[in-house]
């Protein structure tokens, strides 16, 4: 069994979030898993309880993609999509991305790199906000979108309360 050690989520700059992870699979396979709808909808789901009823990917420069997630317990839905700016299979994808609940102005740009290291494929996802304003707006409204409850719990934990 392969247990990847290096899963990183960092905020290296003012406008960027970078996520990286190694996978024990050939690059082409990993690239496919990121770009073929029938594969993407099987894993890009976040925590348990969500499905992906819509997953459309027109994999070419200028092509659009669209994802819709659904929380089965509540029926709550959430969609996002964008346009590919660059498709360099199987090395790199650059795409805009924007959530339907556009609580921030402008789009973010997602650059996903696939690096081959022997039998391992290293994936790096960098999400770059268009502007500081976009990111800050996203941040502020993030709070309103349901983090308050989480913070309450966290604060209780930090304060040593049950």
């Amino acid at each position: 069994m392969f247990y990847p050690e290096n899963f990183h989520v960092t905020a290296p700059g003012d406008l960027e979030i970078v996520i990286s992870r190694d996978f024990d699979a050939p690059r082409q396979l990993v690239f496919d898993a990121f770009t073929k709808p029938e594969l993407v909808r099987r894993w890009l789901l976040g925590p348990d309880g969500w499905t992906m009823p819509v997953c459309e990917i027109d994999l070419k420069t200028g092509g659009a993609y669209r994802y819709v997630w659904r929380r089965e317990a509540t029926g709550e839905q959430m969609g996002m999509g964008g346009v590919f700016r660059e498709v360099a299979a199987p090395e790199r994808l650059i795409a805009t991305e924007k959530f339907d609940q556009s609580w921030y102005p402008g789009e973010a740009v997602n650059t996903t790199g696939f690096a081959e290291r022997g039998s391992i494929t290293g994936v790096t996802i960098a999400v770059l906000y268009e502007s500081k304003e976009a990111r800050d707006t996203a941040r502020r409204s993030g709070m309103e979108h349901g983090m308050a409850a989480g913070f309450d719990r966290l604060e209780a934990l930090l304060a040593g309360r049950p």
Partner: peptide, 12 residues
Amino acid sequence: MVMQPIGYTSPA
């Protein structure tokens, strides 16, 4: 929290 795929939730 309400899950926000890909992560635009954020900061307080």
